[in-house]
Write a protein that binds this DNA or RNA. Structure first.
Length: 605
DNA sequence: TCGGTCACGTA
DNA sequence: CGTACGTGACCGAG
């Protein structure tokens, strides 16, 4: 098949050609529209008219076992999954997800992914909106790089300079089967180029496998957004009520309750009637009036002052309650819990190092609310978390044989303590300090032992640290490019800066080093976790279960009650398979702690 | 109305 | 001078 993208939409090919004679796993680009599916593969392309895309996709997935290629899982499937949250497609290639993996950064719209796949300068990607608006005023300007021998065809999805037209990158393919087919062919072309460029990425791990698992994670993110977390709403309201009382009748009642909560604190201090407890400045002034001088009013700092004045304890209780009045209260439940499911948007790799992110508070539910996360009738929750995942990941990515041997033990810190000749608690501090770049307190001297005991791992971390300080990007084990940010005054402090500015610059350089040091571990761990989640996701589909939450190193599943033990096995076996495929150097043991429960709170944290 | 800062929940 | 994220409040600049 030609690698040249089509210059203009072509008529639809003969029906049925795209999926004929394909081997399982062959890439098939799909574009979902309201009227049907546009399919493109090496075998040809098809328009498949349907108003039930979920059923068609499920059928084609089972029959042909393709690797679905889409610009993004969100573009292709968000609408489909909203209507059919139980749809489970097997394999995919997410152009946006792979683009972010290979090139870093947050921009992953089709025009960026296309430009990178074609080797075009991302800085010259046509901007949507701005140009269109200028065009309305001044008329369309000719592109600076236009080749006079190649007239600009406004129907083409591509500009003469090879970039995707802004309109196409932002939904211009809708409403017309021919345009949808063109959009699918472009996706297939971009997929081929992404896969070719993977071979050139220098990473410790298998980047192609990471492209697959990151794509699966992007699909899982859409499934999580559509499916949601099962919540026992009456129980959630009981937890909220325990902090802030019953649901207010109206705004005036809510204000009255709020004043009452405030008064429980303010009445303890003479003349504090007008102090706004939500203002850290005013709280600090209030405390200063009592002779309590604090640089800030963070709770860990106030915690030490409980004995100093009764208002401190009252304030800490107020803070906790205020959380339920604002962030995790009735409003939050009304807004995000529908039909017993807490739903939010998910991103598979939004974090700086590529962790999953979730909105609607899904990643920061207070522990007290875990009693309200409850399996639906006939089901159970299966909670699993990776034990000591970051030091085990460090062993794998750095290739440190000694640390890999330590990972053979269920408790990795025990053999580390033995090698360092220190208590287990000290060994743990040393390992964490090495990975996080902590140098203060007890960590400093513990680090010296790490340098002697695990020099390979420490060299790996130091290399990332140095790269980060210099402002150079680092790559995770799976190949994710993690970019550094530029410093306000450049990478080298100007000599004319004041001492304070010099110090600020040194601090900023150090922060970049710590970030990079942590990113290669945290980011690689995120990739291992997502690969595990992808394997578990597929095995669960066969059990009638679903992943309902991903929490960095923890998976929460809901499964039919009589399949819970099958799910437990799927978690353990899936982790073994994932680790075996993931480790290219010394084989590192990963362990999962698994519990079958009715409520999330029933599992130890 | 906006961005910065503070605070705090999770890993 | 341990990292990351999302959320909501205040506060000062515009």
């Amino acid at each position: 098949m030609s690698t040249q993208p089509p210059a203009a939409p072509r008529p639809a090919a003969q029906p049925g050609t795209a999926l004929t004679g394909l081997t399982p796993g062959a890439p098939v680009a799909v574009v979902v529209t309201g009227d049907g599916l546009a399919l493109a593969s090496a075998a040809g392309s098809d328009w498949l008219a349907t108003h039930d895309p979920a059923t068609e996709l499920a059928r084609l997935d089972a029959e042909a076992r393709p690797r679905w290629v889409w610009w993004s899982a969100r573009e292709a499937l968000a609408g489909v999954l909203a209507a059919r949250p139980d749809l489970r497609l097997t394999r995919c290639w997410d152009l946006a997800a792979v683009h972010r993996l290979l090139h870093g950064g947050a921009a992953d719209d089709p025009s960026q992914a296309w430009a990178a796949a074609r080797g075009l300068d991302p800085a010259t990607v046509p901007q949507p909106g701005r140009d269109d608006q200028l065009d309305l005023v001044f008329g369309a300007a000719a592109p600076a790089t236009v080749d006079p021998g190649e007239p600009d065809d406004p129907d083409s999805p591509l500009q003469p300079d090879g970039h995707l037209r802004a309109g196409w990158a932002h939904g211009g393919w809708t409403g017309d089967p021919d345009r949808a087919l063109t959009w699918a062919r472009l996706a297939l072309d971009a997929q081929q180029r992404q896969q070719q460029s993977i071979a050139e990425v220098g990473a410790g791990g298998d980047v192609l496998t990471t492209a697959w698992s990151e794509s699966a994670a992007a699909l899982l993110a859409e499934e999580l957004a559509a499916g949601g977390l099962p919540v026992d709403v009456p129980e959630a309201e009981r937890v909220v009520a325990g902090q802030v009382g019953p649901r207010p009748r109206d705004a005036a009642h809510a204000a009255e309750l709020r004043r009452h909560r405030d008064q429980q604190v303010l009445r303890l201090v003479q003349g504090a009637g007008e102090v706004d407890l939500r203002s850290p400045q005013q709280v600090r002034t209030l405390l200063a009036g009592l002779g309590l001088d604090v640089p800030d009013t963070r709770s860990w700092r106030l915690e030490r002052l409980r004995e100093a004045h009764p208002v401190v304890t009252a304030l800490l209780a107020w803070r906790e309650a205020d959380r339920y009045a604002t962030t995790y209260g009735y409003r939050w439940l009304d807004e995000h819990v529908v039909a017993g499911r807490l739903r939010g948007r998910w991103s598979a790799s939004d974090g700086g190092a590529g962790r999953m992110t979730a909105q609607a508070g899904l990643h920061s539910l207070p522990a007290a609310l875990r009693t309200a996360v409850r399996a639906e009738p006939g089901h159970l929750l299966v909670r699993a978390d990776l034990g000591q995942v970051e030091p085990r990941v460090l062993a794998a990515v750095s290739g440190d044989q000694g640390l890999a041997r330590a990972a053979e033990e269920p408790d990795l810190y025990a053999p580390v303590a033995a090698r360092l000749g220190v208590e287990r608690a000290v060994a743990k501090i040393a390992v964490l300090a090495a990975m996080y770049g902590q140098t203060s307190g007890a960590a400093g001297q513990a680090l010296a032992g790490m340098e002697r005991g695990y020099p390979t791992a420490m060299r790996y971390l130091q290399a990332a640290h140095d790269a980060g300080r210099r402002g150079q990007p680092v790559r995770t084990y799976g190949g994710r490019l993690v970019r550094m940010w530029t410093l306000p005054g450049g990478d080298v402090a100007a000599p004319e800066l004041s001492p304070a500015e010099q110090a600020a610059h040194r601090s900023a350089v150090a922060a970049r080093g710590r970030f990079a040091r942590n990113a290669v571990v945290q980011g690689s761990a995120a990739e291992l976790f997502k690969a595990w989640a992808a394997v578990v996701r597929l095995r669960l589909a066969g059990l009638g279960g679903e992943v309902v939450l991903c929490l960095h190193d923890e998976l929460l599943l809901q499964v039919p009650a009589d399949r819970a033990q099958d799910a437990v096995r799927a978690l353990h076996e899936g982790l073994g398979e994932t680790a075996a495929r993931w480790c290219r150097g010394p084989r590192v043991r990963f362990v999962a702690d698994v519990a079958v429960v009715e409520r999330w709170s029933d599992a130890k944290g």
